[in-house]
Amino acid sequence: MLGAGLAAPRSLRAQEAFPSRTIEVVTHAGVGGGTDITARMMMVQAPGVFKQEFLVVNRTAGSGAQALQYLASKPADGHAIILVTQTHLLTQLRNPSLPQFADLIPVARATADPQLVLVRRDSPFRTPQDLVEAGKQRSLRFGGTHVGGVDHVTIFAFGRAAGIQRPTLVPFRGGGEIVINLVGGNIDTAVVNPGEAEAQLRAGELRPLISLAEGRLDAFRDVPTAKELGIDVTGYTLRGFCVLKGTPEDRVAKLEAGLIEAMSGPIYKSYLQNTGQAPDSVAGRQVWGAQLEQFHKDGREALQALGLLRG
């Protein structure tokens, strides 16, 4: 991209020790949003590892669009890293003028929060089979975030893999509202992170039917995964770091090692544990890159099928 091209001579010049100045962490979340908190938790121990200050830059507009633009406006020298979520990938797909997925280098994963398919306590769906059978008879009402958002893609992929009628998305403003409407009986089911519905799961007001994780979750040993049921779909809320393409390889490696070290410290570990996220959330660029690649593909297919891709 343009930013990378302009910055090339500067990054060649900068052969001295890296990092040489404050590292900016760009996020699309407002101060206090879930992703913002992830960034700030990582940053508690990062300055000690890198011997440099860290600064969160919140660029909230356009579901990640502005954050991507901000990143592209910075030299590709590793001093600006972006906290990427699946939202960014969908925004890129829908806006070809933005820096695309191919313009980013994955560095390290920060969180991978699996999702569960939940129903309320007195729901007629007692088993996963009940849900799938009913879904073949009529379109199920799924709660989720906005049309064309990450939940929409996951729900669409779930519906297709399970061979049910295309689910009806009832869009809400966030996880809390989805949980309330699920308990209140306004929707049939929803795909939710366990942390968001922790109180309701513990009180037995909501029941998990299917887990969208790769393997069985420790906290939900007896909840079958979709894959076990022959529904080939996974659902995670992913957050992780990327840098702009053109960043020198040695710096990417240094960032990867350093960020993983910072996120292996006690503060970040206890943050993961207390928010009910898997301790193996932190992963290197191999795993993280592959996962982003997969979602990029799924997202494109889903948006195309839903008629949400322009041009």
Binding site: V147, R166, T168, L306, G307, R310
Partner: peptide, 9 residues
Amino acid sequence: FDAVPEGLP
């Protein structure tokens, strides 16, 4: 405005 995608209730 862009057209509303097909099939939304």
